[in-house]
Simulated scan of single mutants.
Amino acid sequence: MEYIVYVSTAKRLLSEKELIDLLKVSRARNKKYNVTGMLLYCQGTFMQVLEGDKNSLELIYKTIELDQRHKNIIKLAEGILKKRNFPEWSMAFASVNSETLQEIEGFLSSSINHTTDSADHITVTMLKTFADSNRLYISF
């Protein structure tokens, strides 16, 4: 089991409908390849963690690199996982100032703790830092 963490910049701010559409497509693709993870979005910046086998991650990451909705893709970290940090999520998602997305399965709120006991893993630490610095109200 491996992981990738990256950040990127949206070419333009995405509407809630565009984010929902992106999320639906990502979840279907991730489920097909047995990839889990979390996507955070704030004011045009994405941070994503992907977890899965090496071949699946490489395929999905190449697709992400070719996606025309964003630019400046920077891989922050990659490595080996003993177990998934997001085992139940084909793609958890959070966006600041987005009441509509709270109705979608996988949206995070401060009253729900979703991750496993891997709270000290680098992927969780990176997501926490991104969420804190962007005032995303989620809990890990």
Rank of each mutant, 00 (worst) to 15 (best):
C42S: 15
I73P: 03
K82L: 12
A77W: 05
N72A: 12
L59Y: 06
L59K: 14
Q48A: 13
E51K: 06
K54A: 08
E51D: 14
L81Q: 07
C42A: 15
G44L: 13
S56N: 13
L76D: 05
K82W: 04
I73C: 15
I74Q: 11
Q43E: 13
R69I: 01
K62W: 07
N72M: 06
R69D: 11
L57G: 00
Q48T: 11
N72I: 05
E65N: 07
Y61D: 10
E78R: 08
Q43K: 07
I74W: 09
A77L: 04
F46T: 00
H70V: 05
K82E: 09
Q68H: 07
R69E: 07
I80R: 14
E78N: 12
K62A: 10
D53R: 13
N85E: 14
K75W: 13
L59E: 07
D53M: 07
D53H: 10
S56K: 04
K83T: 14
N85D: 09
M47I: 09
V49D: 03
M47R: 13
G79Y: 13
G79T: 02
V49K: 01
L66K: 15
I73S: 00
L66C: 14
L50Y: 00
Q43Y: 09
V49C: 05
Q48G: 09
V49F: 02
D53Y: 04
K71W: 04
E51T: 00
N85F: 03
T63Q: 15
F86K: 01
E51H: 03
L76F: 13
E65S: 08
Q48F: 03
F86M: 03
I64D: 13
Q68W: 05
G52V: 04
R84K: 11
L76Y: 03
K83H: 06
C42P: 00
Y61K: 10
K71V: 09
L66Y: 06
Q48P: 09
K75E: 15
K71C: 06
C42W: 05
H70F: 04
L81V: 14
R84F: 02
Y41I: 05
E58M: 08
A77K: 09
V49E: 01
N55E: 15
L57P: 00
C42G: 01
N55H: 11
L59T: 14
D67H: 11
E51P: 06
A77Y: 07
N55D: 14
K62P: 00
L76T: 07
I60Q: 03
A77D: 11
Y41L: 08
I74Y: 10
K83L: 05
Q48M: 10
I60H: 04
F46V: 02
K83V: 05
L50N: 02
S56Q: 15
Y61G: 01
I60N: 05
I74P: 01
H70G: 12
K71N: 11
I64F: 09
N85P: 01
L50C: 07
K54S: 13
E78H: 06
K62N: 13
L66F: 03
E65T: 11
Y61V: 14
G44H: 02
K83W: 00
T45F: 01
G44Y: 06
L50H: 00
E58T: 05
K83P: 03
D67I: 05
I64W: 14
T63F: 11
K62E: 15
Y41A: 03
I80K: 14
K75V: 12
K75N: 08
E58P: 00
N72E: 15
K82I: 03
E78L: 07
T63R: 13
V49Q: 03
I60L: 15
K75L: 10
G79S: 05
L81R: 10
V49W: 00
V49A: 11
I60A: 06
